[in-house]
């Protein structure tokens, strides 16, 4: 579980996060949504420890990140897996090399143990014939799968995903969403996904946090988001015709 208490983050004069508090539960897919410029990425980078908030605290299973020593922070980071928007695979390494990288860096496993673990996670993300290919040689969807495999190879407690299905076709996007949800339940991890894709919200969103102008505007479940009267949320959710029709149908059903 991750608890966020009143965090603030600025860059120069720009006050990006203006006091956000929330809780992300274990074994659930937590989604952060909001328009571009709402502070989603900065918030996620604060959760990852890439940015240090000026005020407030972030607790990972009760441990306050700001009070940890450098070594403790490093150990905690090894419990985090991250799937970046562009996958962020290492160009100079093969698929196998990318997935094996965290094991080589932080474990004392033998080559055969590492190979077994890599094979297992690649099989888990349905990638079995791509071990020796380089990132440039595989599709965007496959790159995302490799990124997920790399993120879970160390058995993380926390999984972070930044726009995991951006740039993917709708069918592959659904497969990636499903994969993340399955892994979250299977490994019982705290998953936080940064997205502005309403399909993902419908598909896998168990808890949804809506950010606007660096503030928490709304939070709830995927069922509640269609019933809310919060104007900023409804403007965001019903910006597409498809969801406008879904809402219309819901209102008609209610009457």
């Amino acid at each position: 579980m991750i608890e966020v208490n009143d965090i603030h983050k600025s860059f120069g004069d720009a006050h990006i996060l203006k006091g956000i508090s929330t809780t992300f539960e274990k074994g659930k897919t937590n989604l952060i949504i909001g328009q571009s410029g709402s502070g989603k990425t900065v918030f996620l980078k604060c959760l990852l420890g890439l940015f240090t908030p000026e005020a407030g605290s972030i607790l990972y299973d009760g441990k306050d990140y700001s009070t940890l020593s450098e070594n403790e922070k490093r150990n905690l980071r090894q419990e985090m897996g991250m799937v970046f928007q562009g996958s962020a695979l290492f160009d100079s390494m093969t698929v196998e090399g990318n997935v094996k990288f965290p094991l080589e860096m932080f474990t004392k496993q033998s080559q055969s143990e590492m190979r077994d673990r890599v094979n297992m996670v690649l099989k888990r993300v349905n990638l079995v014939d791509a071990h020796n290919k380089f990132p440039a040689e595989i599709s965007g969807g496959m790159q995302k799968r490799v990124a997920i495999a790399r993120a879970i190879v160390m058995n993380p407690k926390y999984l972070f995903c930044d726009e995991p299905n951006s740039g993917l076709d709708p069918k592959t996007a659904i497969l990636i969403d499903d994969l993340i949800k399955e892994i979250t339940e299977e490994y019982n991890i705290t998953t936080i996904i940064n997205t502005h894709d309403m399909n993902s919200v419908m598909q896998i969103g168990e808890k949804i946090l809506f950010l606007k102008d660096g503030l928490k505007e709304w939070e709830g479940t995927k069922n509640e988001i269609f019933k809310t009267d919060n104007e900023a949320v409804t403007n965001f959710v019903y910006s597409s015709d498809l969801f406008k029709k879904v809402r219309q149908m819901y209102i008609e059903e209610r009457h």
Partner: peptide
């Protein structure tokens, strides 16, 4: 620079490298 732009450096940092 390309590693920075493509978030590969962020990936290293997140892993604790």
């Amino acid at each position: 620079g390309t590693m920075r732009v493509t978030e590969q450096i962020d990936a290293l940092e997140v892993m604790g490298v």
